[in-house]
Lab assay of single mutants.
Amino acid sequence: MISLIAALAVDRVIGMENAMPWNLPADLAWFKRNTLNKPVIMGRHTWESIGRPLPGRKNIILSSQPGTDDRVTWVKSVDEAIAACGDVPEIMVIGGGRVYEQFLPKAQKLYLTHIDAEVEGDTHFPDYEPDDWESVFSEFHDADAQNSHSYCFEILERR
C-alpha cells in the first residue's frame, strides 16, 4: 500500500524555501509514529532540507540527478522507488510537492495534518478530489505552549 503523509496549511501550503513555516512538535511526533519502520520516499529537495537519513526507516530518494550519499537509496523513477521498498505492507511518501503529485494517483491512504495557519509558501500539496477519499480518523488539537497553531490529524482512505 502506498501512503502519503503531509502537513498542510491553508491553501495546501506545505513548504517555503525548503522548510515548513510553522513550529508543531506534535506533528513531528505524528510523522515519526506513522513512518517508523517503514520505507520513506522523498525528493532530493526534501532530502536536502532534512540533511540526514531518517533513523529507523529505509530512505529512498527520487531524483533525476541521483546523489552520492550511500546512506540512502537513490532512484530515478516512481517504479524504481516502489521496487526499492521491497515487499512491505506500507510505503510512506513524505514529499515534496512534485513527489506527492507523482504518487497521489497510486496512493491508497493519506495521513494529513491540517494546520490552521495562513502562511506564504512556494510548495503545495497537490489538489485531490475529496469525494474519492473517506475520512477514517480525525483528531483536532488547539494551539498550545509547544505548538504554534491549532491542527487536525486526519487519515483518508481511497474509496
Rank of each mutant, 00 (worst) to 15 (best):
S77T: 15
E17P: 02
P89I: 07
D11T: 07
H124P: 06
K109Q: 14
T35S: 04
P130E: 13
A145F: 09
H114A: 10
T73G: 09
Q65S: 13
K109M: 10
D87S: 08
G86T: 09
I14V: 15
L36P: 00
I14A: 13
F137R: 10
A19H: 15
S148L: 01
S49G: 07
E129A: 08
V40L: 15
D116R: 14
P53L: 15
V88M: 10
I41E: 04
S77I: 06
F140L: 13
V88C: 15
F140G: 13
D116Q: 15
D70M: 13
R159I: 08
A143R: 10
C85D: 01
K106T: 12
V10G: 06
A143K: 09
I91L: 14
A145I: 07
G67K: 10
A6I: 14
V88K: 07
A84T: 09
A81L: 02
V40I: 11
R159P: 12
R98W: 14
A83D: 08
Q102G: 08
P21C: 15
W30F: 15
S138A: 06
A26V: 02
S49R: 00
R44K: 15
H141A: 05
E17L: 03
Y151E: 00
I5L: 03
G56I: 05
I41V: 15
T73N: 09
R159S: 10
D132I: 10
L54N: 00
I115T: 06
G95K: 02
I50Q: 02
L110F: 06
V13S: 07
V72E: 04
V72Y: 15
K38S: 09
E134W: 10
Q108E: 09
G97Y: 03
L4F: 15
R159C: 09
F153K: 02
I41G: 03
E120T: 12
E134I: 10
P55S: 14
D144H: 04
E17R: 01
H124A: 14
G51E: 12
D144W: 03
D116F: 15
Y100M: 03
V119A: 09
P126T: 07
N147M: 04
T123G: 01
Y111N: 00
V99A: 11
Q102L: 14
P25R: 05
E101R: 09
P105A: 12
R12D: 06
V78Q: 11
P55L: 13
E120Y: 14
D142A: 11
G56H: 12
A29V: 04
D131Q: 04
V136C: 11
C85G: 06
D69S: 13
I82D: 00
D131H: 04
P126M: 08
W30D: 03
M42F: 15
K58V: 13
D131A: 04
K106W: 12
Q108N: 08
F103T: 06
N147Q: 07
